[in-house]
């Protein structure tokens, strides 16, 4: 037992038993800070108290001394619990650092470059709710065509992130931007069906835009339908395409549709982190989301997605519950 602590404590105890001032108590509290820093356990503190008392008031009756032995016995487990708590905190810190590393690895792995196209303005934002992102966005392009994949693993965190890597390698195996959307979904579906447990569901949207014809062709595997904004009629419509979620069964017939984009028309692709935003009053409805998008329709696609994210973040009082991904294709 550190003699120095014993000496200090005895002094504080002596002062306090004589005067009972707030100053003495304050010293006592400061003393406890030192004890904690030096890892002195509760049972040792009681033992220090007992030893100090023995010196200051040796005349106390025997049963008082015995009572301290009982108290020491009682405090042993507090001491153990405290030590366990300290190791668990250290462990947690290690986990946190590992997560941060993993998240960096993921970001590098899933990095996708937003292509620059002559007649198409592209904006993209993807913000994870936790360290790891369960949303996936990937661009494929050549001189005239740009392909866009948006996928969402049902669930968040590490399991979702691991799944995403698989989609990435599936996408890498494709032959460039011109691959038809239904072919893309078919390939990815087979990969996912083979490799993922039944409890994991992934929705995915794939679209290609041909700058030479201004036609957007798309297919969906149970994904949130994109919104199409028509500048001429100043109205939104949903781009519906039937198709089962990825990985449920090996042979799925996906529907493929096309739409022609006029000047200033745009397509908004998203994950359910956008449509399932919740404010205090309940879900934020699609109309609200449309109004927010429409209010910034004259800005660049990148400014638009960033504005929508911040606006929805604000409506949710900055509490993001799900991974959030938004992509806009806007014809210049």
């Amino acid at each position: 037992m550190p003699q120095e602590f014993k000496r200090q404590y005895r002094e504080i105890l002596e002062q306090y038993t004589q005067r009972q001032t707030e100053h003495n108590l304050y010293e006592g509290q400061n003393f406890s800070r030192q004890l904690i820093q030096k890892n002195i356990s509760p049972e040792e503190v009681i033992s220090i108290h007992k030893a100090s008392l023995e010196e200051l008031m040796p005349e106390l009756p025997n049963n008082v001394w015995h009572s301290f032995d009982l108290l020491i016995e009682v405090m042993i487990r507090y001491g153990l619990a405290l030590k366990e708590h300290q190791t668990l905190i250290k462990k947690q810190e290690n986990f946190r650092m590992e997560m941060e590393l993993a998240s960096n690895v993921q970001q590098t792995l899933l990095k996708t470059k937003v292509p620059e196209m002559n007649s198409l303005d592209i904006g993209m934002i993807s913000v994870p709710a936790k360290e790891m992102n369960g949303d996936y966005t990937h661009f494929l392009n050549d001189d005239t065509t740009v392909g866009i994949a948006v996928a969402d693993v049902i669930g968040k965190g590490i399991p979702a992130a691991l799944c995403m890597s698989m989609i990435k390698y599936g996408m890498d195996s494709l032959n460039g931007a011109e691959t038809e959307p239904i072919v893309v979904l078919d390939v990815i579906n087979r990969i996912v069906e083979k490799s993922v447990s039944d409890s994991m569901f992934i929705s995915m949207f794939y679209g290609t835009y041909d700058t030479s014809t201004s036609v957007f062709t798309y297919a969906s595997a149970g994904h949130e339908p994109p919104l199409f904004y028509c500048a001429k009629s100043n109205s939104f419509s949903e781009l519906q395409a039937k198709g089962l979620l990825l990985g449920v069964i090996p042979n799925v017939k996906y529907e493929q549709h096309s739409i022609s984009l006029g000047k200033d028309d745009f397509v908004v692709m998203m994950t359910d982190g956008v449509t399932e935003c919740r404010s205090k009053e309940g879900f934020i409805d699609q109309k609200t989301v449309m109004d927010i998008i429409e209010s910034v329709r004259d800005q660049s696609a990148q400014d638009m997605v960033e504005y929508v994210f911040h606006k929805l973040e604000e409506l949710q009082e900055f509490e993001q519950r799900d991974d959030f991904t938004l992509v806009i294709f806007k014809k210049k």
Binding site: M1, E43, E44, S47, K50, F68, D69, I72, E73, I76, R77, L80
Partner: peptide, 9 residues
């Protein structure tokens, strides 16, 4: 006393 209590625990 403290070590006694630790050993018995």
């Amino acid at each position: 006393t403290v070590d006694q209590a630790r050993i018995t625990t």
